[in-house]
Design a binder for these strands. Structure first.
Length: 173
DNA sequence: CGTCTTTGACCAGCGC
DNA sequence: GCGCTGGTCAAAGACG
């Protein structure tokens, strides 16, 4: 739950649009809760987005877009999109990608979690090394297929740019 | 004080 | 017709 809260706490995600969460539901096919978002940049924008953790690997987020934006990306947001505050939505496709791939699913790579020490993706006591390698193979397979997509390069560039421009400040605790 | 998130309740569609 | 499931609404609380 806390991870989901983390996921949904950021309103401006890196697809350049502003989203408002209006619901959350646990679906049958995926134990991870699915969150429902609406575009809040334009009151009449019919676009909806469903965000759910990928069942194959919960480090990844899957965002499904429904509809088409009837407005442009806010320039300020669109620009800050490259250097937006780091959120777990990192790796979203660029605004252009989102528009051209309307009515299609977009995969959002959760890059921040990959570096999270809290993530328990290492082989645990009940997670054999073989199983771990199996999962790793699946991920690599998925990555290989994704990297063939030219849009992925754009998304990756945006994600890398954001991580560079938003280097964590030295926190004094 | 205004905005946003959370979450339980409600509704509609679909399969049996 | 009934039950299940996905999607949406709306009230309450949290936060800046």
């Amino acid at each position: 739950m806390s991870k989901l809260t983390l996921m949904t706490s950021t309103l401006v995600v890196k697809d350049g649009y502003q989203w408002r969460k209006y619901g959350q539901k646990v679906t049958k096919d995926n134990p991870s809760p699915r969150a429902y978002f609406r575009c809040s940049m334009a009151p009449r924008c019919p676009v909806k987005k469903k965000v759910q953790r990928w069942i194959e690997d919960k480090r990844y987020l899957v965002a499904t877009y429904d509809g088409e934006h009837n407005h442009d990306v806010d320039c300020s947001i669109g620009q800050s999109f490259a250097s937006a505050k780091s959120s777990s939505m990192a790796g979203f496709p660029s605004p252009e990608t989102s528009n051209t791939s309307r009515f299609q699913s977009n995969i959002a790579l959760d890059l921040t979690l990959s570096g999270s020490s809290q993530e328990k993706k290492r082989p645990s006591s009940h997670d054999s090394v073989e199983e771990y390698h199996n999962k790793k193979m699946k991920i690599e397979e998925y990555v290989a297929s994704v990297t063939k997509d030219p849009n992925f390069t754009i998304a990756l560039a945006a994600a890398v740019a954001s991580s560079i421009t938003d280097l964590p400040k030295p926190t004094i605790l």
